[in-house]
Nucleic acid binder design. Structure first.
Length: 897
RNA sequence: GGGCCUGUAGCUCAGUGGGUCAGAGCGCCGCGCUUACACCGCGGAGGUCGUCGGUUCGAGCCCGACCGGGCCCACCA
């Protein structure tokens, strides 16, 4: 007996070999309204609901990327989310219980800014919660409200407004995803700023802290002066930045002359702590150990040797300031130099004149730059250097690379501050090796994306800085005692129990303290910082999987199977998730990572947001249909950039319509109430058997491709087969399937064979297409089958092979070539394909001879050959089938050939 | 400077352990209202596979160099 329809628990598919009763094929088929109709049904039936009684081995869990709800979705999202959905649908049909949640990322700067502008407020954690608060503005979208005009509100109020605002976005986003046909379980959504997500982030942090993986340190670090927050290595972006080399004289204290250095940051002159040159540099060897005096400010600094100094850069001797760049930090640390910071966290030169500037002139010069931005301070310093003659020549303009916060527009400065870190291998070789090993374990699709992971981990130069000096976000669940002098005891943090989470240390009180002790000597103070957004989103598997509150669920879904994401956030989201999982669970967070490429506009540039917004995703879906857009997305391989191509969507739409039409046709034979018998034993005709043999190969190959995350290959195989099926097989088999040659009232064996083969083929093809074209396939499925195609089992080749017997697929191609030869005769004669042929000889290559002969009667019928159709073997080397000596039956007025 | 990806018909792309691999679709040209489909069908014309070397009996497919695209990292004196 065949097993072409293996039973699945939720799929009331036909039992092997049984008849599928009752067809209900519409007279006219259409894609119009198909998305709303089926999305509604799927929702009503809970078709994609996750069965949480499933065991881990049965579950396929997906760590869906939560889109930023304060941005807008663009075609790139549609593209990559389709890839994931194809996987989800395939796995579901393969019998897996698919855990496919959707998250909304409403934590972070984009949401913070949007809430500020939309409601005219700003977050001030020092304020108490006001339950009755109503924002001054509603929907001041587009206009940004000046900071001075923003009403300060408590963090809790701010979070509430965030949730209020993003709720509207989530409705829009969900509508789009539904329209696109994502088979998400909409009963399982999460928000990254929700109480649950905050609690997970805090709990994970507390555990990192308890294990010694998280720590606090006061150290120089990269600082964004606009946002006034520390920034992590992963958030850096190197950009070109105009600057100028200034050649500046330092005066030797022994009075023997001057040393010239070159700098692009003359405004940092008051922060200079040393001059540094390479130990082997002949030019400066004599100076090592001596001191020089800084111009303008008259501070005596040593000339030192350090191998990190590069003789061919600038003058070969550099001024080391605290801090101009990361090399300065290295020198400062390794040469044990003093800290002389002059730059404030707001990016301005500190107002108070520092005590290391002792001379009257120096103090005067400093007063002239105090409080200025780096830009103005630079002008002032340069003017001063000109005045004193310490500027040698004119500044030489240069283009240099500077580090920027990816969301910022001013170069990062280096500022000393107290920050939280989580170990990520950046300063611990053993941990780095472990994390590199995790990367090796993880199956990247495509695999070369693994290199990006390895490069990043290999190049880390510090631990993960997780604290941010912002106000909206997940606060650190930490308080500190104040000693009797009111000094903060950072070394003795007060921590909440896990049951108390989430906490907000700015409004909650640590155990054994009362609110009135906040900020007073002997009392306590809350940690003012919030976590980096990645510190929360690195925990999406834990948040979505119920790590904290639902261990039963968590055990069924974690470690997850798949992380789909973009290649640009391998260093951030992917890596940080691996770090958290490794530290907390001692495992990878998922076994596979599917990396989608970019969408490029027709100019081969990365599709910009502005362009992406011109073509809204919803507009695309409405114009072309969801299946069509999905087809375009599914045509692009993972990890490969794809062009935004409307043409490809049109092809997809055509395919979807073809599926409807061809299916309608394949189901049109026999009386309407006559059952479709899906019995391979009925398939006896050589052509039918060959078709099934080909289809069986396609099923095997497509299945293997999808297993390997190669949805493109699977689609291509299926599609190619399907078009041949339509253009050749359906045409060839048409008359026989109608029962053209059967006696009145009888269904001949050939007819039954064709009908069974058509049914079996349709049955498999619909399921093969279902992951990519969920709407069209479901529509067709509903005409003749019970249940949803999306819960039907993935096709297997075994039943098809039973029907195929020992037939080889090539017969279909041979017969198709023969039919094409007859068509060509008509095409060249410029007559209708319906024109009858009264005589022709098919000259076929030897290799095709048997195939053509096996299907000759079908070829005759499809080619409308009424008389003799001869068969001859072509000479060696001839290609293709040629019809010779064709005589067409032409209308009287067209003349004869 | 280091690394990854990529360069095949006008366009978008397949070409699977080197030997019918020179392909598909779109576009183009011509034809056809053939009762599944005119949101269609049929037929046809398009390429010395970026360049130059090398390995091999044989190379889009392997190796090297170069040229052209895209991206990541490093480079802030």
């Amino acid at each position: 007996m065949s097993d072409h329809l293996p039973s699945a628990p939720s799929a009331p598919a036909a039992a092997p070999g049984t008849a599928v009763p009752g067809r209900s094929v519409p007279d006219r088929v259409s894609l119009d309204g198909i998305e709303e109709r089926w999305d509604g049904r799927w929702t009503a039936e809970g078709l994609y609901a996750f069965d949480r009684t499933a065991e881990r081995a049965q579950v396929f869990s997906i760590d869906t990327p939560p889109p930023t709800v304060s941005g807008s979705l663009h075609v790139g999202h549609v593209f990559s989310y389709t890839h994931t959905d194809v996987v989800a649908r395939f796995r579901r049909m393969r019998g897996a219980e698919v855990f496919y949640p959707m998250g909304w990322d409403d934590n972070g700067l984009p949401t913070e800014r949007r809430v500020q502008n939309y409601y005219g407020v700003r977050c001030d954690p020092s304020l108490p919660y006001d339950p009755a608060f109503e924002p001054p503005l509603q929907g001041a979208e587009g206009k940004s409200v000046r900071a001075a005009d923003q009403v300060p509100i408590s963090r809790r109020n701010f979070v509430e407004l965030c949730e209020r605002l993003t709720a509207e976005d989530e409705v829009q986003f969900e509508a789009l995803w539904r329209r696109l046909g994502l088979s998400v379980d909409w009963g399982m959504t999460y928000q990254t700023i929700s109480a649950e997500a905050r609690a997970v982030a805090q709990q994970a942090f507390l555990r990192n802290l308890a294990r010694g993986e998280a720590y606090q340190a006061e150290a120089p670090g990269l600082w964004d002066v606009t946002f006034q927050t520390a920034v992590a290595q992963a958030e850096l972006e190197a950009r070109d930045y105009p600057g100028a080399f200034h050649r500046v004289a330092f005066h030797r204290t022994d009075g023997t002359g001057a040393v010239h250095i070159e700098t692009t940051r003359p405004e940092l002159l008051p922060a200079c702590v040393a001059l540094v040159a390479h130990p082997d540099d002949e030019r400066y060897r004599d100076l090592f150990g001596t001191t020089v005096r800084t111009p303008l400010f008259g501070v005596e600094v040593p000339v030192l040797a350090h191998p990190a100094a590069e003789p061919d850069k600038g003058a070969g001797i550099a001024m080391c300031c605290t801090f101009g760049d990361l090399t300065d930090v290295q020198w400062w640390r390794e040469l044990d130099l003093p800290t002389r910071s002059v730059l404030g966290r707001d990016g301005r030169i500190l107002r108070d004149t520092p005590d290391w500037i002792a001379t009257d002139e120096g103090r005067e010069r400093y007063a002239a730059v105090a409080g200025k931005t780096t830009f103005s301070a630079r002008e002032a310093v340069v003017a001063g250097l000109r005045e004193t003659g310490d500027l040698d020549g004119e500044p030489v303009a240069t283009q240099r690379k500077a580090n920027f916060f990816e969301k910022g527009d001013k170069p990062l400065e280096i500022v000393t501050s107290r920050q939280w870190y989580i170990g990520n291998g950046g300063r611990d070789e053993a941990l780095r090796a472990e994390l590199l090993a995790r990367g090796t374990e993880l199956d990247f699709h495509p695999d070369f994306m693994k290199v990006r992971y390895e490069n990043w981990v290999g190049g880390l130069n510090g631990d993960w800085l997780v604290s941010r000096q912002r106000f909206f976000g997940v606060p650190f669940p930490v308080w500190y005692p104040l000693d009797e002098h009111g000094e903060v005891r950072h070394d003795a943090p007060l921590l909440p129990g896990e049951d108390a989470l989430p906490v907000d240390p700015s409004s909650d009180v640590p155990a054994a303290y009362t609110e009135d002790q906040r900020g007073v000597p002997g009392g306590f103070v809350g940690d003012p910082d919030i976590m980096d957004t990645w510190a929360t989103s690195s925990l999406t598997p834990q948040i979505a999987g119920g790590w904290r509150t639902d261990p039963d669920l968590f055990a069924r879904v974690f470690p997850m199977d798949l992380r789909p994401q973009g290649q640009d956030i391998i260093r951030t989201w992917l890596f940080s998730t691996v770090v958290r999982s490794h530290l907390e669970h001692g495992s990878l967070p998922w076994s596979d990572a599917a990396i989608s490429g970019w969408i490029l506009d027709p100019d081969r540039k990365k599709m910009s947001k502005s362009k992406g917004n011109v073509v809204t995703p919803m507009g695309l879906l409405e114009e072309h249909g969801s299946d069509a857009v999905r087809y375009w997305a599914a045509s692009a391989r993972l990890g490969t950039d794809a062009a935004f191509e409307v043409g490809q969507m049109k092809i997809g739409r055509r395919l979807a319509i073809k599926v409807l039409n061809a299916s309608k046709f394949a189901l049109s034979f026999g009386a309407p109430d006559e059952p479709v018998v899906l019995d391979p034993a009925l398939v006896v005709d050589p052509l039918d058997r060959a078709m099934l043999a080909g289809l069986a190969d396609v099923v095997d190959a497509a299945t293997a491709a999808l297993e390997a995350y190669d949805h493109t290959r699977a689609l291509e195989l299926t599609e190619t087969f399907f078009w041949t099926f339509c253009d050749d097989y359906l045409e060839l088999v048409k008359d026989r399937a109608y029962g053209a040659g059967d006696a009145e009232g009888e269904v001949g064996a050939g007819t039954a064979s064709a009908r069974a083969a058509l049914g079996l083929a349709l049955d498999a093809l619909l399921r093969l297409f279902a992951p990519v074209l969920p709407f069209a396939t479901e529509e067709v499925w509903s005409w003749w089958r019970e249940g949803s195609v999306h819960r039907a089992p993935w096709p297997t080749s075994a039943g098809l092979r039973t029907g195929a017997g020992d037939a080889v697929p090539a017969v279909v191609g041979a017969a198709g070539s023969a039919l094409a030869a007859l068509r060509k005769v008509k095409s060249e004669a410029k007559v209708s394909m319906r024109t009858e042929i009264e005589h022709a000889v098919l000259v076929v290559p030897a290799a095709l001879r048997d195939g053509v002969e096996a299907a000759l009667s079908d070829v005759r019928a499809a080619g409308r050959v009424t008389g003799t159709l001869g068969l001859a073997v072509a000479p060696e080397g001839a290609e293709g089938v040629v019809a010779q000596d064709a005589r067409l039956v032409l209308p009287a007025d067209a003349g004869t050939r």
